[in-house]
Amino acid sequence: MKKLEVVIPIVIGLGLFILLYNSGLLSVERSLTTLAEKYLEYIPDASSIYTSMAFEVVTAVIWDQRGFDTYFETSVLFFAIIATLAIASKLEDIIGERRSLTIIVRLVTRILAPIIVVVSISIALHGHITPGGGFQGGAVFVIAPLLLMLAYTSDWIRSRGFTDRKLLLLRGLGVTLIALAGLIPVVYSYTTNINAYLFQNQAKPDSFFNYPAYLQTPISTILVSGTIMLLNILEFIAVLTGFTLAFYYLTREFEKRGGGE
């Protein structure tokens, strides 16, 4: 019995290895696929007709080339959080004593949380220039409310005026605005009879609908890469509010008495 515990996993792993080895995926000599080469060639090239006007290939592919896909992935996240809220119990007041942690941890958390938030905002805002984007920024952001909820109690988040209702509203607003930004080209196409595609960003050879790539300000020109920066910000809001909400419920569940041993 004990021997089987080791043998079976190794057999599974070895089988997978042989499978991949025979298909040639693991070989040392490898080159980029044609699709990857095209992406890398066209997306950052401002003179090309298929450009996204962005420096970051990964985020550009996520929001431009695969925008429709990503929208539904965001919705999956949204529905998962809705389901989480539905299954989690109602927010009755927690009976029993809850203490916040010692003064050292509380103060360190209060200093650290704004820094994490600022870093996450920087990650989200520069999604089209440096690595990062809405998803990543949101993922980093959640560490801050989580730390605050652990160091104080979960009441902290309500004491600052972030009720669960407001957070859910923001979350829904984020997802809706993403859909709207994707739908605008289609609406435009209906009204003006110009060809345009769903989630279109820059002009294509047969369609001249175009989100502006630059934003002119009195000081200087800002690169917004069409919809990419906008969608990154909306996605950031959607992800951070959704996860904060989910963790608010989970932390309250955690603080309740009972269960275990």
Partner: peptide
């Protein structure tokens, strides 16, 4: 370098939790 700061703050989160 972009992942360094989140990683450094993760340690604290683990300790607290």
């Amino acid at each position: 370098l972009i992942g360094v700061i989140p990683l450094a703050s993760w340690v604290f989160l683990l300790d607290v939790v």
